[in-house]
């Protein structure tokens, strides 16, 4: 776009910056400055509640978080079973938990979401009701759904144990959230329930822009419904799936509320965000926790950039 040189153009450009000024100012104060500050604190050993008493420690926080431990002779330190000893084992555990949680929940949401979207896309009696029902899990605040599910997962009085016992799936009640084998899966199940609606609605929007006459033509050519799904629906809804995937991946990588409320990171459910929060506020290690925050920010940024660039491609296409 060429810069307008006319009187009107100047007037418009001036007005534009005036209208943008409050937004830019607020974003500088509440987002840009804190981000700059987080980076600068991350190079210190500052403790919460003791401002001005910190020392510059360079990259020490980062190397402790990200790198393996080294023995005195300079070789990588290993545990007796041969595993590498990391500077902060909790960090890498939390990364692995977060990635598993993200990967599994996003796949399940996409499959379930696509299924529900396809059902919603067909015509039937009671479609309005289903449309509304889909929004219910989405409308329940995360903290509330976390407590709702924690109650359902209760080992003695929980409804899930009761159901599974009645169905004969399990012989004795399971402490879903206290058990290392089940806690992460239990949280994933809650996440999937909570976020499938969002996925379904995004995918439904994608389905609705596919023109109906393509299917009519396919019917005339004698293509089966299954053939139509794989050769028409899936390719055409792919951009919507992709955008929804990245959106949900970003959300899942940031997961905090549900974990904090359901397990507080216990029984093998610590995620990057809950661990950073623990370091910042429970252990009061502002410098160390900030370094973790910055690492999380970079991981998220990689996904955001890929999202924004996809958006660009879509717009110009």
């Amino acid at each position: 776009m060429a810069a307008p040189k006319s009187q009107l153009g100047k007037q418009q450009e001036q007005l534009a910056w005036m209208l943008l000024a409050p937004t830019i100012l607020i974003m500088l104060i509440v987002a840009a400055w804190p981000l700059y500050k987080a980076v600068s604190i991350s190079f210190t050993n500052e403790r919460l509640g003791k401002p001005g008493q910190s020392e510059y420690v360079g990259l020490e926080n980062y190397t402790k978080i990200l790198l393996p431990k080294f023995d005195d002779d300079g070789s990588i330190s290993r545990k007796s079973n041969g595993d590498i000893r990391w500077g902060d084992d909790d960090w890498w555990d939390s990364v692995s938990n977060t990635l598993w949680l993200t990967f599994i929940s996003v796949i399940l949401e996409t499959v379930l979401g696509l299924g529900i979207a396809l059902v919603l896309h067909s015509k039937f009696k009671g479609r309005g009701f289903l449309r509304t029902a889909v929004l219910v899990p989405w409308a329940v605040p995360t903290v509330v759904s976390a407590r709702m599910w924690a109650w359902m997962y209760n080992d003695v009085f929980g409804v899930y144990n009761d159901m599974l016992l009645r169905l004969g799936v399990i012989d004795s009640p399971i402490a879903w959230l206290a058990n290392k084998q089940t806690a992460l899966a239990a949280i994933i199940a809650m996440e999937v329930w909570k976020t499938t609606p969002f996925m379904a609605l995004l995918l439904l929007a994608g389905l609705q822009i596919i023109p109906g006459d393509i299917y009519e033509a396919a019917d005339i050519d004698g293509a089966s419904k299954i053939q139509q799904f794989f050769s028409i629906t899936l390719p055409l809804v792919r951009p919507a799936i992709f955008v929804a995937l990245i959106f949900r991946t970003l959300d899942a990588l940031r997961i905090f509320d549900a974990i904090k409320v359901m397990t507080n990171g216990g029984s093998g459910t610590e995620t990057m965000a809950t661990l950073a929060y623990k370091n910042l506020f429970d252990f009061q290690k502002l410098g160390y926790g900030s370094a973790m925050s910055v690492v999380i920010f970079f991981i998220i940024t990689i996904f955001v950039v890929s999202y924004v660039t996809t958006f660009d491609i879509q717009e110009t296409a």
């Binding site: 937004t23 400055w33 987080a38 604190i41 940031r254 910042l280 506020f281 925050s293 940024t301």
Partner: peptide, 22 residues
């Protein structure tokens, strides 16, 4: 425009510590 789009996905956890000092 792109900064604002990116900001819609800003991870709160990344700045909660420094924001606390503010």
């Amino acid at each position: 425009l792109y900064t604002i789009l990116a900001m819609t996905m800003f991870p709160s956890i990344a700045i909660v510590g420094s924001l606390f000092t503010f």
